[in-house]
Amino acid sequence: MQKLRNYLWLFVSICYFCFASSAQTHESRLRAHHIFWKNQEANTDREIDFGRGVAAKILGKYKILRDEKKVRYVSQIGTGISAQLGRPEIRYYFGILDTEDINAFAAPGGYIFVTLGALKLMRNEAQLAGVLAHELVHVGQKHIIRKLKLQSTDSSVTSGIAQVLGGASLSAKIAIERLNDLAFKMLMEEGLSKDDELDADQKALEMLIATGYDPRSYLDFLKSLKPHLAKGKAVVLSKTHPTIEFRYSKLNEFINRNGLDKIQGKTNEKRFKKIMVSL
């Protein structure tokens, strides 16, 4: 009798274990998912607020180009890519900076800028799409926020940016201002980590392939940057990014590893030249 009772206990425990790992967990998993998603939403709000401050600082340093036709063209290309492959909860803004310095910036929350110098260097639409895609990845992977450690990399429920930037008091505002300065300095002087830039390059290439652009054009653009970097026309870019040779070789490696070398796509050179004719 005693033995039988022991076996009964074992049977009950096994039943309980199955129950715990199937039906109940599904419900609690859904609840955890809901809480996490709510928190994510709050995080997105704070991220946009934060990125807006950084974008205003970028526009404080460089003047914005108020040319409706060109800005519309750039934003159409950028929105076309981001609508398909960007973060779905964010509205992206694309602007042109009126400076000869060759560069492109991405502030958190979806503010993306290309300089006039970079646009002048581009030969077709695929190159523009590549540069925009590179910046889209920085926003999508939250590289700046991760580097500022505003968000923990794991998916814990009490994470991040909402906690740091959530307050409405003056001290919270000062903290935001300081963090904005740090992010701005990162864009202008320190740069992101090497891995982040390479990640952005590779994912930009994926985006180009997905949207039907010629991925080789992006590599060509990188190559064409080299003499200009040597001339000192892209001071900020050379300070904040890994060298062109390194990025080029890593991208080639990525292409060979995934067998992407035979993919061809559109370049839309005529359309690009028609809009950018006055540059």
Partner: peptide, 9 residues
Amino acid sequence: SVIFLTLTE
């Protein structure tokens, strides 16, 4: 924008 992107010359 997406339609604009899919147009090819």
